[in-house]
Design a protein around this nucleic acid. Structure first.
Length: 286
DNA sequence: AGAGTAGCCTGTAAGC
DNA sequence: TGCTTACAGGCTACTC
């Protein structure tokens, strides 16, 4: 699923291709009624057409296209949204929900099997992402910052890491990777973690995200790829994932079989050897 | 206020 | 074989 590394990979690829280009056409499929937020697709397209792309940014899992009139075209891929850089004559892409023509003869295709993806055209990108927590790859994100933002919550650390207002950009895959790297059980209440735990967790988060970007994202599924890059090719990070999706397989560190549990309704894979279960709170009576 | 969960959506895989 | 059900998950809206 698209998380920070998958969005960042697409941002970098797009930056190299579309900065300076002008949007010459816009079409949103009627079978994607929730794609465009706030205004009707017709108005969205009218406002977007003719704008030049000045830059590409990312904030958490949001992709931000800065336009020449100062406004921002913001996209969120959610579960299955992808942005493809194609030519009109290229073979059609399945689940294409919107197409944006460019003045270099290419077009951007928005594909989205599950139709959870959303986009906005706003005066200021921060309008749609006010509550987001810090960027995990910024120098300002330190173990102390993580501890200050997460350390008072009683919910399982896994759930807290998925809360985008605590930290921006982690999803189910990289959360499992970070917790495994840090040797922390997903069910441990965040407010029971020690300072040393937050230091290892911080390192695990940064390491997992950097590796994901280095591998051009994680593409899971065989026939159905949830993440593909702008050229339609999958990433390779799925090949070196340590925890996510490895239920029953041996832990790369200690060899014990990985286990899967539900945490906050989300599937979570961990190693019972490397990630010790939280010591049960009071054992009822003596 | 924080924690927990249903619902959005579709294709795949498991179960009967 | 063919149908039904569960599952995947980012995020919002909702309840407790």
């Amino acid at each position: 699923m698209p998380e920070l590394p998958e969005v960042e990979t697409v941002r970098r690829d797009l930056e190299a291709r579309v900065v300076g280009r002008t949007i010459t056409s816009c079409r949103v499929s009627p079978d994607a009624p929730r794609l465009v937020q706030i205004v009707a697709p017709a108005e969205f397209c009218r406002e977007l057409t003719g704008r030049r792309i000045d830059g590409l940014r990312r904030r958490g899992k949001y992709l931000i296209v800065d336009l020449d009139d100062g406004r921002a075209w913001v996209m969120h891929r959610r579960m299955s949204g992808n942005v493809l850089y194609r030519r009109p004559a290229d073979p059609p892409d399945e689940y294409t929900r919107a197409v944006f023509g460019l003045d270099d003869g290419h077009e951007l295709r928005w594909t989205d099997l599950r139709k959870f993806g959303t986009m906005w055209l706003v005066e200021d990108a921060t309008m749609v992402m006010e509550a987001l927590g810090p960027e995990p790859l910024d120098a300002a994100f330190t173990p102390d910052v993580l501890r200050a933002r997460a350390g008072r919550r009683s919910a399982p650390i896994k759930s807290v890491l998925l809360d985008q207002t605590v930290l921006a950009g982690l999803g189910n895959l990289y959360t499992d990777e970070a917790l495994h790297d840090a040797g922390i059980h997903p069910l441990r209440p965040a407010n029971r973690l020690k300072r040393a735990d937050f230091e290892r967790l911080h390192a695990g988060i940064v390491r997992a995200l950097r590796m994901g970007i280095d591998g051009r994202g994680s593409s899971l599924g065989t026939t159905l790829r949830d993440h593909i890059n702008v050229d339609g090719a999958p990433g390779s990070n799925q090949e070196r994932v340590q925890a996510y999706g490895r239920e029953g397989a041996p832990c790369y560190r200690c060899g014990r079989p990985m286990r899967r549990i539900k945490v906050g309704g989300r599937s979570s894979v961990f190693c019972p050897g490397c990630q010790p279960a939280p010591r049960g709170r009071r054992v009822r009576g003596r």
